[in-house]
Design a protein around this nucleic acid. Sequence first.
DNA 1: ATTTAATATTGCAATATTACGATAATAATA
DNA 2: TATTATTATCGTAATATTGCAATATTAAAT
Lengths: 107, 107
Amino acid sequence: MGVTKTHIFSSAQNEMAQIAKVLAHPARIAILEYISKQEGCICTDLVDEIGLAQPTISQHLNEIKKIGLLKGSFEGKNLCYCIDEERWQELQNSFNAFFTNINQNCC
Amino acid sequence: MGVTKTHIFSSAQNEMAQIAKVLAHPARIAILEYISKQEGCICTDLVDEIGLAQPTISQHLNEIKKIGLLKGSFEGKNLCYCIDEERWQELQNSFNAFFTNINQNCC
DNA sequence: ATTTAATATTGCAATATTACGATAATAATA
DNA sequence: TATTATTATCGTAATATTGCAATATTAAAT
């Protein structure tokens, strides 16, 4: 118990849920919003901006990375994270398709 | 620890995360898809269709209900659940706004 | 009134998530 | 090469989520 039974669902359903899970924390929403507003992005800024400890921010960044949403490039000792545009578009399309495919025909 | 620090985020960020959390489980994705395909919907159908125990389905339905996505009306001893169109549209708009407001300008 | 069928609630075990202190790794700078 | 600054990883505590058996609730049907 306590484990999601992923094997009984389609891969599309599992993927949709996994993407949603990444968006299911306000810190990750805030991180995405903040990165998009900056020209570049340095992780320390995020720690100051958001108010969670550095390891916690690092963990959240990792969750976002896992679904391919972050491109990171080192600029000297600093790390510049930014959003992968192509992947972002993909996710937007997935959500849009999901929302529009649900059609309500009862009650 | 282990509690999300909601107080350090904006209500918009918290709401976004909360909605995403409901979509962050394949069973709930499957439930929404199934309901939308049916004329009506009875919980037992869902139990048969999805393959989780009846109390588990009931719990998932409750999560979906919490964000106002389900309208339910009893038809005799059966319960007909359906998706609240207005609320659904609202959520679609929120997601769309979120995705389009993120603009990538680095790297 | 009993029985039956459908859904909800309770209680609990297993696992996942969130958060952070301590520490490691990495690379620029003195 | 030591120091410093930035980010990652490890270990751990607290809380949340998932899932189900047992049971309660509700209302139709007998």
